[in-house]
Amino acid sequence: MLSPIDLTARQESSILGRTNPLVKLGIALGWLIGLGLMHDPPRPMALALVAVAAGLVLGRIPPARLIQGLTPLVAAAGSIALANLVFAAANTDPAAHELIRIGALRLTAEAVVVASSIGARVVAIVATGVVFAQTTDPTRLVDALVQQARVPERFAYGALAAYQAIPRLSQDLGTLRHARRIRGVGCDWHPKLLIGLLVRAIRHADQLALAMDARAFGTTPRTAFRPLMWRWTDLAVGIGGAVIIVLLLLA
């Protein structure tokens, strides 16, 4: 069953776990921009290693979880590198150094560099993303978005409430498939399943909206039960993240 990431107490009380989600989001975005400026394999790989190390040490992510989170994504990232290898403009450039030729396919040294640096870039993006998700409680993220980034609160908490429905919806999907089987129409992945799932999702949304309206949602600007304040760790982590990307860009 699909369920949102469940942080362990250690993860939550770790340095990254207590860092303001906006700071982590800012770092991740800053790194993303920095990665866009790097066109070599080693520096993105270094950044990926930093992210993983930070996740293990500062985020106390259990290694098994980190690996579990990274593996399928790195595999998906490999396909992007492959596309770059095969379709690189350099492959058709007569001046480029040819490495191999299989029929119409010509791979050049330049293309390999491009593909491996893109591959490294994607691995770095994946690593940052997994570390972010594995140290951030969605409720805290939305609290911070509303209290500190001034995201409209009705939309933010509405989205959060919908997000909490994921386990329920994935159970519903299982039952929809069971129903098709026990009623003798087979249990393939029929498009009707998507419709059935959306029907359920919308009905759940209706009920949730009713329950939220009944609890005065959106009637007046809210107060916060979990007020967030900027802390020194936020500053330290933020500076650390900025220093790393600047150093790498200068390297």
């Binding site: 009705r154 989205a159 409430a161 919908a162 919806l169 919308i202 949304a205 209706d206 909206a209 939220m212």
Partner: peptide, 16 residues
């Protein structure tokens, strides 16, 4: 609220 939740839930379903 219903609009927000329905749009959000469509987003969540497709997020999955």
């Amino acid at each position: 609220t219903r609009d927000i939740l329905v749009a959000a839930v469509i987003g969540v379903a497709f997020g999955v």
